[in-house]
Amino acid sequence: MIGRRVQGSVQGLGRRSLDAVVGLGRMAAFVGTVASHAVRPPWRLRRLVDEIFDVGVLSVAIVCLSGATVGAVLGLQGYVTLSRFGAANSLGAVVGLVLVRELGPVLTALLVTGRAGSAMAAEIASMVTTNQVDGLRMMSIDPVDFVVRPKALAMLFAMPMLNALFIVFALFGGYAVGVELLGLDGGTYVTSMEESIDLRNDVAGTLLKSVVFGALVGAIATYRGYTSEPTAAGVSAATTSTVVTASVAVLVFDYVITALWGV
């Protein structure tokens, strides 16, 4: 009796593990298909521009606003802690390094996941639900090529730009609080920032991170939408799982990249 129950739970564990591996494999195959389409003509630049508008241009406002707020609060928190050690003059270095190395790419990726990744998954999922994907196939248009590829590429392309915008606005936010509000010397702030941030390690690292995050969020959002159940519940499940999976993936990959490259 107990033996059978133990056997059942072990079986359940095995089934879930297999499902997880199969799911990862399907996603890898899907990403491979999208990638192979991405390097082949037709380029469909018009579709790409439209998607960059949705992902990039429409996210500019929230990314800039969040950046300025995060920079300002970093300036405030950093000042309180640093002035305890009489090191308030290195506020610029602290704010700059934290933003460029970690907060910039990660927060931008999380914001874009919520703002554009969820919408991307929902759009594809409702196309699946209303048989539009099958409709495209009937007209012998490959939905991966026509729908999925421009969306994933737009995410990959827009993420580094949004990341750089976020960091620049956050640096200004930190400057506004540190120099204008708290009265630090502007030259000291900017110099300590510029001297501590390194082009090869820090700036190249933040761009690498944002490109990887863009690819991750784009792949997860399109995959979840494309493989959703063709029901109303399927659309909502695809949206939710996109936000959850993409956010966790961004945080995990952030650690991995930091550990491997030391950026």
Partner: peptide, 20 residues
């Protein structure tokens, strides 16, 4: 979209040349 790309590249350039 064109302005977005230009502003994005300008931000990347600012980070690379001025800050880094």
């Amino acid at each position: 979209v064109g302005s977005f790309v230009l502003i994005g590249l300008a931000a990347i350039g600012y980070l690379s040349l001025q800050v880094g």
